[in-house]
Design a protein around this nucleic acid. Structure first.
Lengths: 209, 209
DNA sequence: TAGATTGTTAATCGATTAACAATC
DNA sequence: TAGATTGTTAATCGATTAACAATC
């Protein structure tokens, strides 16, 4: 286990975890880094370094890494064991879809409140959550130790939503709004910019034809 | 204009574009890379290199870059001028949300067909699209020169959806399924892995407290 | 002219990859 | 033992940043 894990490694870990679980489901008990590398199109050394960064027990020559142990280590490292509470702001199409998605708890994040500014929507139930008014955001977040904010409002309201979440004490924000938002340095902003993958795809198609 | 633009640069371009448009909307006609850098928390040299990579006319000392011209260049480079046709597979919560989102055409991508495997859903109208059966994917894509596939099916069906899209001749795939999917090398797969930003957020929160 | 700004060349930094030793 | 595999050290590669020259 290494102190500072490089961001690229951290970003690959979720995909490793997924693969490891799939391999385990076939009944295997160990896996070599070469197998992982081949499956994911990575260099074997990259895989070995990545695993070395989070694994508590090393691999065994001729055998590889023990699946059970490795899976636990990765989950442990990614923080999938303890749940971070999240609040979602903006119950539109995308917000509703995220609220209805059951998979986030597997990633250590649980959405436990939803907010909107539309009186038509406030008070209605969406995927088991009664939508609250945005005016309650900061009070609610403080009272319930919410650590993550999810922003699914239009670009024009994104900064406002961010400000209220920050005031409520969240430490990280996952934003889907196509807007640059600003927060204090110690609040991490993860901007899900749909334009990026689409740009990469467009470029790829263009250069191929 | 440089031949091969580094991927990191390409990934920053959509954010530049957004900022440039916002600055233009305030009435300004030019912008310096220092302003951009300060606004986005980048190194000014990074900005200058990024812009040099896509700009057709250079900046002017003491003035900066002309906004109108620069915006056009970035849009041109990102391919926002000609529309790539896309087909979406999996009309669940997320799929419906994406279908209803009007913003993709601004990114040069237009969803023009939706497919699902559920007989209950096939034939219904979602956001203006009549949902077709997955069995029609490859025929439809070939006939309509669809170049991009969007996968919003459960993980267990992702590979199947991918295969049908590839058979239909798509050149790139944008997948939201939490699964590793495989395609021929010349088909670019953009995997939108929700687990990655969530992992980064969890890590950040953990290391702070 | 002086100063702001671009543009380029060189230095630095970090991640990936290659080479090889260690081990079961 | 031989061979597969891990683990580590060194080399490479590419992106970022620093230094500086050019220009209006």
């Amino acid at each position: 286990m290494i102190n500072k894990v490089p961001t690229p490694t951290l970003q690959r870990l979720p995909a490793y975890l997924q693969l490891l679980k799939r391999i385990r489901s076939t009944g295997k008990e160990s896996v070599s880094c070469n197998d992982i590398a081949k499956e994911m199109n990575y260099n074997p050394v990259t895989v070995r370094k990545d695993i070395a960064a989070v694994s508590t027990i090393g691999g065994r020559p001729k055998v590889g890494y023990l699946l059970d142990s490795l899976i636990l280590d990765v989950e442990q490292y990614l923080g999938y064991k303890d749940l971070n509470k999240a609040a979602l702001v903006g119950v539109g199409h995308l917000g509703s879809a995220l609220l209805a998605y059951p998979g986030f708890t597997a990633y250590g994040v649980g959405i436990c409140a939803a907010f909107d500014s539309d009186p038509q929507i406030i008070g209605t139930e969406v995927a088991g959550h009664i939508v609250m008014s945005v005016s309650e955001i900061s009070t609610y977040c403080k009272a319930n130790a919410i650590k993550i904010g999810i922003i699914t409002v239009p670009a024009s309201n994104a900064q406002e939503a961010c400000d209220m979440l920050v005031q409520g004490g969240v430490r990280g924000i996952w934003s889907f709004a196509p807007a640059l938002i600003k927060a204090p340095e110690d609040v991490l902003i993860q901007h899900e910019d749909m334009a990026i993958p689409l740009a990469l795809l467009s470029k790829h198609i263009e250069t191929q034809s």
